[in-house]
Nucleic acid binder design. Sequence first.
DNA 1: TTGGTCATGTAATAACATTACAAAAAATCG
DNA 2: CGATTTTTTGTAATGTTATTACATGACCAA
Lengths: 145, 145
Amino acid sequence: MAHSHNDHSSHDHVWAADLTRNQGLVLAALAHADTPLSAYQLLDTLRGDGLRAPLQVYRALDKLVERGLAHRLESLNAFVACADEHCRRKGLIAFAICNACGKVDEFADAVIEECLGDWAGVKGFKVERTTMEIRGKCAQCVQAV
Amino acid sequence: MAHSHNDHSSHDHVWAADLTRNQGLVLAALAHADTPLSAYQLLDTLRGDGLRAPLQVYRALDKLVERGLAHRLESLNAFVACADEHCRRKGLIAFAICNACGKVDEFADAVIEECLGDWAGVKGFKVERTTMEIRGKCAQCVQAV
DNA sequence: TTGGTCATGTAATAACATTACAAAAAATCG
DNA sequence: CGATTTTTTGTAATGTTATTACATGACCAA
């Protein structure tokens, strides 16, 4: 079934190639949204496309996150499409999440990553992945008061 | 280990004073554990002390976290007692969580905090709270292979 | 074509968290 | 003290997030 995500992202050709149907549907839904979506919100969104069970969504999300095409926001139990154009971001990624409008700003900071590396080196801790989420108000919402 | 969660003996008088019964029970259970506990694990632990419903635990946890006596680990949906002796840690707190043994090391890093402040300043983002969790293997578990 | 691997479908259940309502305990204040 | 207000507690029901178990289909390679 042709799902129509062609209109909202220049990413399409990047992933259209080797994503499975369900993965494509989920990533398209995430890319289309302007705030993070929970697995169940994704499921509701995609019922019209034939998805019926949570597991179908979770499985797709697992793969997408594994490949760095989507990210999980632990403090929200929700997911976003990767904001990086090439979906090849390496290293630590941080998220600034606006509590008012829900929008998320994804960024990387080499200095923070270095601090973390230093700490891990000293402690002998082997880092596998890092979650960094800032909650607060974005500039727009701060002003909107 | 910089801060040990097991050594709660010296904490007892600190909080005994103005915690409610349920708050005291929950904090004691957390301080006693050497890994994070979920709300339902706490509930099971404390059934013998009269707790019967999840809400009793969640309410206590809310207050404890609010006061900085406990922390929520978002990536685990679990809680730990604050490792700081004076339970008055200010600013950004990071957690290194061992995926093998489950132990958590709590630390603060001024440089990271500064980076974050800089980023927020530039972006006009008003930070309310920050979650930083490193998942990996602690020195002990790395060696134990 | 057989066997392996990967994606899928479906149902059931587990794990985590909140809402709504009522009653008891404690603090405040006339 | 007694009346009022706030805080804490208890209980039930429900909502939300995530996984386990098992069966099927699709694909590719030996």
